[in-house]
Simulated scan of single mutants.
Amino acid sequence: MVENCANQADIGLVYRSLKYSRARMDLYHRLCDVYPLEVSGKELARYGNLTLANAFGALVGNGDYQTEKSLVGLGLAVRIPAIVDGKTLDLFRATEYGLEIKYRMMDYRQRLGPTGAEARVGSSVKV
């Protein structure tokens, strides 16, 4: 299968998109965790404890979710239509670009070190 990753967004836009949507973040991490397997939208919705409409919004965009900021729109996931028993089923899989972004963000957080509450917990300074 050929991945359509012509619409790869820069890491800043990806980070902002994931930061402001828990649904996108949860589904993105789930897709990366099960890579290279494909997962149905219904299974992803169940995993993220989301309604099917919210899961599809985070994956491909609709009503509340902008299409260009969805996981497929950012190039982090690919939508794969499959025919099962004569019915079309949408499967989703993380892209190579999506995995690369995940590892770049993890590397950035490790280099950044503890911040905010994490830094205050280990701090010896008393207020």
Rank of each mutant, 00 (worst) to 15 (best):
T115S: 14
C32K: 02
G63L: 08
Y108Q: 13
T115D: 07
Y20V: 13
Y97C: 12
A9M: 11
C32G: 05
V34D: 10
A53N: 10
Y103K: 15
P36S: 11
I11Y: 07
G86S: 10
A94I: 03
A94Y: 01
R111F: 07
V121W: 00
C32E: 02
V121M: 08
K42R: 11
T115Y: 06
A94D: 03
S21N: 07
I80S: 07
S123Y: 02
G41L: 02
S21R: 02
L13R: 13
A53V: 14
P81A: 09
A23H: 02
A6W: 06
Y35V: 08
Q110N: 10
Y47W: 13
Q66T: 07
Y28H: 07
R16N: 12
L44G: 04
G98F: 00
S123A: 12
Y65W: 07
A117T: 12
T67A: 15
L27S: 01
V127T: 09
Y103P: 00
V78A: 04
G41T: 01
R111P: 00
S123K: 02
G63M: 04
A58N: 04
G113Y: 06
G113L: 09
Y47E: 05
L76M: 10
N62K: 10
N54S: 14
R109A: 14
T88Q: 15
L52D: 02
Y28K: 03
A55M: 05
A119D: 11
E100C: 00
V34K: 01
L13H: 08
L59C: 06
C32W: 00
R24L: 06
I80Q: 07
S40L: 03
K87L: 12
E3D: 14
R24Y: 04
